[in-house]
Structures are given as C-alpha cells and as structure tokens.
C-alpha cells in the first residue's frame, strides 16, 4: 500500500505546513497548507520563498483544490504541491494534470491500482500546465508548433 506518493526528483518537503493566515502574516515558514475555500492567490506574492504547498481535500467530492493547484502552477510556482486528505486513486491523474506532484492520502492507496490509473489513458483533450500536449495539438502539429 502507498501512504505517500511523489513524482518529484529528489527530496520532498518534511517541514510541517502552517496555515495560510500564519504564513502570510509573519511566518518564515517555507511550507503552507491551503484549506478548501481559502484563496490560493493570497500566496502569489510569496511563491519564491515556498517549497511546499499542501492542499487539503476534506472530502473527495470537494473539487476546490483542483483550482487552487492550477492557479499556483499558472503563476509559476515550482515547488512541491501536495494533495492531502480524502484523495482517491481515481483522482490521481486529474490532480497530476492540475499540477500536484505529491500525494498523502488519508487512506493508503493500492500500488497496483495507482499503476493502472496512471497508465489508463494515453491522451488528454485539454491543455493545462502539466506540459502534456493535448489531442488538438497532436492533430494540428504544424499550426500549434508554429
């Protein structure tokens, strides 16, 4: 069973994450935790001193964290972006597409199920910040590559 999953090269953040409020207030912490409903954009002025952002999923059906992740990556955040909480194996791929690169689910995941999920779909329809070429770009390589 997998309790922690990382797609990053090298070390992952060990420092305990602080709340957004204490982080933006004064903390010299480099790790912060965003709760569902908190505005990820509050972190944008401080991205250069962050090495870990945890995004909490209080319930698997609460999808606010997907937007939080994309917003951070779209703003150029390069550090570790970790999904924590009620994270299910069937969500890993979508979370990866939104920019998450590590996972600490409340309930450990089945290794084989993770493998299957990661390799289930060869192609994607949307462009996000994950760098994958969407199907429309593959259909029109000359146009899209200029």
């Amino acid at each position: 069973m997998v309790e922690f999953l990382s797609f990053r090269e090298g070390e992952t953040g060990q420092e305990p994450a602080v709340t957004v409020e204490s982080f933006t207030g004064q903390s010299n912490s480099t790790a912060v935790r965003i709760e569902a409903g908190e505005d990820a954009r509050e972190l944008l002025p401080h991205l250069d001193r962050l090495s870990l952002v945890e995004v909490n999923f209080p319930a698997f059906g609460d999808g606010r964290g997907y937007s939080a992740a994309r917003i951070l990556r779209e703003a150029g955040y390069q550090g570790e972006l970790r999904a924590v909480g009620d994270v299910l194996v069937d969500q890993i791929v979508a979370m990866r597409r939104c920019g998450f690169d590590s996972f600490r689910p409340d309930k450990a995941l089945d290794d084989a199920a993770v493998e299957r999920a990661l390799h289930r779909y060869d192609d994607v329809y949307q462009k996000t910040i994950d760098g994958r070429r969407p199907i429309w770009a593959k259909r029109h390589p000359e146009t899209v590559n200029g």
Binding site: R70, A94, M95, Q126
Partner: peptide, 14 residues
Amino acid sequence: RQWSTFHPEFTYLP
C-alpha cells in the same frame, strides 16, 4: 464535448 471530457479541474464541481 471533447474539452469537457475528463476535464481535470472541473470534475468535482459543487
């Protein structure tokens, strides 16, 4: 249809 199929950000909407 294609854009919305398995949209990574918008699959767990309110």
